[in-house]
Nucleic acid binder design. Structure first.
Lengths: 154, 154
DNA sequence: CAGATTTAGTCAGGGCACTGAGTATTTCCG
DNA sequence: CGGAAATACTCAGTGCCCTGACTAAATCTG
């Protein structure tokens, strides 16, 4: 059997896209704070006091990964983690002063980086780009939680 | 500063897209062989006898990562790795019988998976989807190798 | 109220992805 | 020919990402 053409394989393209982004992030945004870490900071700026699981849900990380990311952010002093007095299973998360400052700084740099990253596309193409990726990703995620937004069966 | 809207951040979308793909791959293609591993098999079907570095270049993996992936494929008996008699630095890579069989099997399943993954898009949208991602990824990779396809400076 | 179930988080294990440092081999050039 | 530079690969270290098995706490139900 002949080899497949990977340039028409969405998985391969997605991986290449993510790697390209990773490298640009490293040079233009931060070598310390990663993109997923920034996503967590960004979520907690908007909604302080969320628990781990919910933050993971917001940024799209599973329980194990979000635990690692949060532990790194705590170690760096960007995040505080305290037991929820009303539910002993949960930890409540909140940015420190330093965490807020870091988020502010990275938000500016990230905007600059996105300009460079998306430079090959026109404004209309960018809209389409976001729309297509979002639709594919949403649909695939939907396959994992069957019946989530459906009426009860039977 | 207000939180940024991550749904317009290409890096965040790329990560979500890749994760969605990862999960679908696991359920529809293989729990043993990963997508990057398949990409390596696919490359060697077409060009047997390539060395590690070149395979890495073809599929978009750096020297360290490709070494790990290849070592796993060897361990599974899908790949043979022998010193190049003409250049003692290189290893020549070649699929085993089993490797060819595995590639054949996964090619069929991957095609099925891609259909499901891309189901939310029309045929024209898929073309645009590939084109936009490829252009962004290519441009970002180009930023790393400045002057690669340029005339010699000054 | 007690036991079953659900939920939040941890831990071990496997794989992907990068950098920086180091080894061995080849090549280039004086 | 012999030393410098380039090349192929390895290794250690960090971080992301998932699953499956586990613990502890809350909730649901008889």
């Amino acid at each position: 059997m002949a080899a497949a053409d990977l340039t028409t394989h969405p998985g391969h393209l997605a991986r290449r896209l993510q790697q390209a982004h990773y490298l640009l992030w490293n040079t233009m945004v931060s070598e310390e704070i990663t993109s997923p870490q920034y996503a967590v900071l960004n979520t907690l700026v908007d909604e302080p006091g969320l628990d781990q699981r919910t933050v993971g849900e917001r940024v799209g990380l599973d329980r194990s990964t979000i635990a690692e990311v949060i532990s790194r952010l705590c170690r760096r002093g960007l995040l505080d983690k305290v037991r929820d007095p009303e539910d002993g299973r949960r930890f409540l998360l909140r940015l420190t002063e330093e965490g807020v400052r870091t988020h502010r700084k990275l938000t500016v740099r990230t905007a600059r980086m996105n300009q460079v990253f998306l430079a090959p596309l026109t404004a209309e193409e960018r809209t389409v780009f976001f729309d297509l990726i979002r639709r594919v990703a949403d649909a695939a995620e939907g396959l994992r939680n069957p019946g989530e937004s459906l009426v009860a069966p039977g």
